[in-house]
Write a protein that binds this DNA or RNA. Sequence first.
DNA 1: ACCCTTCAGTTGACGCTACAACATTCGCCC
DNA 2: GGGCGAATGTTGTAGCGTCAACTGAAGGGT
Lengths: 180, 180
Amino acid sequence: MATRWLDDEEQATWRSFIAVVELLPGVLDTQMRHESGLTHFDYLVLAMLSEDPQRTLRMTALAGWTNATLPRLSHVVRRLEGRGLVERFPCPEDARATNARLTDRGWDTLVAAAPGHVETVRGQVFDALTPEQVGQLAGIAQAILGRISPGGRPLSPGAGPVSPGQRGTAEAVTTGPAPA
Amino acid sequence: MATRWLDDEEQATWRSFIAVVELLPGVLDTQMRHESGLTHFDYLVLAMLSEDPQRTLRMTALAGWTNATLPRLSHVVRRLEGRGLVERFPCPEDARATNARLTDRGWDTLVAAAPGHVETVRGQVFDALTPEQVGQLAGIAQAILGRISPGGRPLSPGAGPVSPGQRGTAEAVTTGPAPA
DNA sequence: ACCCTTCAGTTGACGCTACAACATTCGCCC
DNA sequence: GGGCGAATGTTGTAGCGTCAACTGAAGGGT
């Protein structure tokens, strides 16, 4: 079957899009590293843990929320544990599994890093878009995600069956509101 | 000044978008490596060179077209040269500069790799989008690029002052039509 | 009870990228 | 025409991610 090449509009779109995809991680990483000594991925790991009421997740679950492979996560968590931001302990219910928990120090680091991160996200992405484009981007990202990520999960770890009052100081710190 | 956190819609959009940004490079890389033994970035380098009438570009220009830092490009081109896909020679007009030229073997490799790449781009991205969304994505990507890339250049190396007849077999092979 | 498959996670080796230091050349100004 | 800052690349190092191999435990069938 003959290759269906991209037409001019698709071609132009692809070039811009791929440029964003290649450059954005670097931008986020650089800001994060300079202001907080973390990788953007480190930040993601801490943020996902922070959204769980117990600040604890199993490695596989954490890998899912952060869109990472298990080996990658394992290496990162080991390094984070070495810095005292996270601690690991075997899961009581399944001896195969490992739980990762955010330490107080990890929490503080995350809270300190969040404002700078949000500012970057706003400044480099959302401020460049109209409200209408934000809605469009959501739809586009979801659509692509449906293809490249089999069991796409756009939700958050804390979004499960958790009574609202339980959140308390454990409120999420991704790019949302910080705790009081 | 108080941090302006992301509202719910922005938050949800960001999560999906960042997931795409983190996952897409891996998808492109994996396909490329399995089918052609190239990195996606390798492919980009070869493709950009292929669009020049002389199949030759200066390192700095090539770095610009591929959105790469100069050190990164230097390493990649050295490896590509070792595989005989590219050759380097000093620029006659400026003794500081280095020219990179696509070899015949590099051209063949690129042409062989292009169909699989385009199929992946179609299958994983464009097939998931409506024609309307493609237009939206172009605008969004351009807008973000304007922020994260100072001197954003969405054009191609061959788009300069070149008489059409000059292209011949040197027609571009990025995600567009291949040579006859 | 036993085996076999699958699941959960870790580890080690290799490759690629960012960062910083360096060498060389150009352009300019006086 | 000599010196100085900027531009063009290259190289070395360190850090991170991927891949494949491995350990150990759970689940299921017979």
